[in-house]
């Protein structure tokens, strides 16, 4: 079923919208959640929450790109769930690894907690990514949005894991520099 049709189902408040979404994007969303949470049980709960949030937000939303819209919901829901997990049970290995790597991007400075800065940070990161060659920004998103492992990225790109690691290192260093240049502190 086409995405537009599914969105129309949401707008018409037909419950089949959820079933169709599950059929088409269930595995995709579960994959995103699993990489962050690392266990099936939490994944299922997270994906089910996604369907509920989609139901509650469409309408008034009319996403132009449904999978991206859903993927972002799942990702954030999974991250919220991740924060609630105990330290013993915490998260998917790749998500943890990606967080360790992202530590390097933090520019020097004090902490700012306002929600607006969160949105601005997203915007600034987007701007930074647009300055990169396509393959580099794709690599960044695959690693830090989708939490693809370095091994998978190496396979996707037909190169060694060392090369992937060094590319990511340089991209992170560039992001840090960009954030500092913009006067952005986290």
């Amino acid at each position: 079923m086409k995405d537009e049709t599914i969105v129309d189902l949401f707008w018409r408040r037909e419950e089949s919208a959820i079933a169709e979404t599950r059929t088409k994007y269930g595995r995709y969303l579960t994959k995103i959640a699993y990489r962050i949470l690392g266990n099936l049980e939490d994944c299922e709960e997270c994906v089910n929450d996604t369907y509920l949030k989609a139901w509650n937000s469409i309408p008034p939303q009319r996403p132009k790109t449904l999978p991206v819209y859903l993927g972002k919901i799942t990702r954030q829901t999974a991250i919220d769930c991740y924060r609630r997990q105990t330290s013993v049970k915490r998260g998917g290995a790749e998500f943890e690894a990606s967080l360790d790597e992202l530590e390097e991007c933090i520019p020097a400075g004090s902490t700012i907690e306002m929600e607006l800065d969160g949105q601005m940070l997203s915007s600034v990161i987007s701007q930074y990514l647009y300055t990169l060659p396509q393959d580099k920004r794709v690599l960044f998103i695959r690693r830090y949005f989708y939490c693809d492992s370095v091994k998978v990225l190496a396979k996707q790109n037909g190169c060694s894991q060392s090369k992937i690691k060094s590319s990511l290192f340089r991209i992170r260093a560039g992001l840090k520099e960009y954030l500092e240049k913009e006067g952005f502190v986290i």
Binding site: R75, Q76, G118, Y144, F145, I186
Partner: peptide, 20 residues
């Protein structure tokens, strides 16, 4: 702080995600 960055990455431009 890294979680803030990760969270922010979750809200980047849709076009970037589509491209990836």
């Amino acid at each position: 702080k890294a979680e803030k960055i990760s969270e922010a990455i979750g809200n980047i431009d849709d076009k970037l995600i589509t491209e990836a």
